[in-house]
Amino acid sequence: MAPAQSGARARLMAAFGGSYLSSVLIGTVAVLLLLGVWEIALRFFEVPIWLAPKPSDFLARLYTDRALIAGHAFWTSLTIVEGFVLGVLVAIPLALAIVSVGALERGLYPVIVFLNIMPKTVIGPILIIWFGIGPLVAALIVFLMSFFPVLVDSMSGFRLVDRRLFYISRSMGASSWQTFWKVRLPAAMPHIFSGMKIGVVKAVEGVIIAEFIASNKGLGFMIVRASAFMDMTLMFSGLVAAAIVALIFNGAMSIIGQWLMPWSRH
């Protein structure tokens, strides 16, 4: 590459690369460009709305049907929170138990791994018979999806705590309870948290599918119903809303992580 060219490129990188703001800017420009091309192409080829809606159609629908969409988005969010929180509350103590008791590691852990290989949505119809169609079943599916990554990373977190830290806490005369709360759990937190991050990704992925098959509320349910009515515009609006919900949850996780563990940025 010629020096002049690489110099120009470096300036371009300096102008657009680097800062957080500029990466947001580039992302926004790219999305707007895509939507623009989409809009123009569909207008130019006169594609009927029941086949593929224009961005102007489904973005307008996002506004006009905002009460309906926000209501379903609320249920989807609630389902994510319920399933995910339940997953974390079960996974962390279970991880500690598995790491601490050798018999559990050899006996219980393979069973959990096997259950995890099974596609979670397959359990949906069974859960529907047990609990009836509703957000509860969707939350349980979300729980099953987000639970495993939290379990695995919590296990390695608890295991990787430096043994010598336990010598130090014992030299302070700490009880095993104190050692757990003041040393082991916080020291394992970065690992637990990276498991929770993956868990949230799984949860927002899983929740829509769970609502497709097993719920009567939420964005997944709204999209399936819109599909039944051939309401293509509402389906696309639902997609956008689902993406926004996913963005909010992933973003919230990153912010919580940076707030709880400022050292992890270094």
Partner: peptide, 17 residues
């Protein structure tokens, strides 16, 4: 184990949080 002791290891083993 006795607790009237202080221990320092090669690594500082301070708690990050």
């Amino acid at each position: 184990p006795i607790s009237e002791i202080g221990i320092v290891f090669q690594d500082h083993l301070l708690l990050d949080f």
